[in-house]
Amino acid sequence: MKSAHGAPKLNKPKVVFIMGATGTGKSKLSIDLAVHYQTEVINSDKIQVYKGLDVVTNKVTHLECRGVPHHLLGVIDDPDVDFSVHDFCRDALTAINQITQRGRAAIVAGGSNSFIEVLVEDPTYNFKSIYDCCFLWLDVSPPVLNDRVSKRVDEMVAAGLIDEVRGVFIPQPDYSRGIRRAIGVPEMDRFLRAENRLIDDEKPKEVLLDEAINEIKVNTFKLTCRQVEKIRMLREERGWNIRRIDATGVFESPGAADVEKAWQSLVLEPSLAMVGDFLKGHEKSFSPPYQFPATLPQVPVEM
Rank of each mutant, 00 (worst) to 15 (best):
L138W: 09
L72D: 13
G103E: 12
D246S: 06
V250M: 02
R66D: 15
L266G: 05
K128Q: 15
L209V: 12
D122Q: 04
A109M: 10
Q38K: 15
L73T: 03
L192C: 09
Y290V: 12
V60P: 02
F191L: 07
K261H: 08
Q172I: 05
T61D: 13
S253M: 05
N58F: 04
A7F: 12
P123S: 11
R181C: 03
Y125T: 08
S129P: 01
P293S: 06
K217T: 00
K261L: 09
H71D: 15
K12Q: 14
V165Y: 02
G239V: 09
P143M: 03
H70R: 02
N11I: 00
D147E: 15
F17A: 03
M19E: 05
M1K: 04
S265A: 12
S112C: 10
A21F: 07
L136D: 00
A182F: 10
Q291I: 07
V75K: 10
P270R: 00
F278W: 06
L33T: 05
V108P: 03
L136Y: 00
D78M: 03
L63M: 11
D77R: 06
M1F: 08
V275D: 10
V157F: 13
N214R: 12
E269N: 15
M188P: 07
N241I: 00
E164K: 14
V85P: 04
I18T: 04
V68I: 04
R238V: 14
R238T: 14
K151T: 04
V301R: 15
R238K: 13
K280M: 13
Y50W: 06
P289C: 01
D91G: 04
G160K: 00
G281T: 11
G249A: 09
R180G: 01
C89H: 08
T24L: 02
G74M: 04
N11Q: 08
A106V: 06
V299H: 03
A247S: 11
W263K: 10
E211V: 15
V218L: 08
Y37P: 04
N241E: 14
V56D: 03
Q38V: 02
P289D: 13
P289T: 01
F278C: 05
K46A: 10
A106E: 01
G239Q: 02
L138I: 14
A158L: 12
S253T: 05
G74A: 02
L268K: 03
V267W: 02
Y131P: 12
K151R: 15
T248D: 07
P186G: 05
E211S: 14
P289Q: 03
S114P: 00
I213P: 01
V275T: 09
R102Q: 11
C134I: 11
T220Q: 12
L279G: 09
T248H: 05
N97H: 09
R193Q: 02
F127A: 08
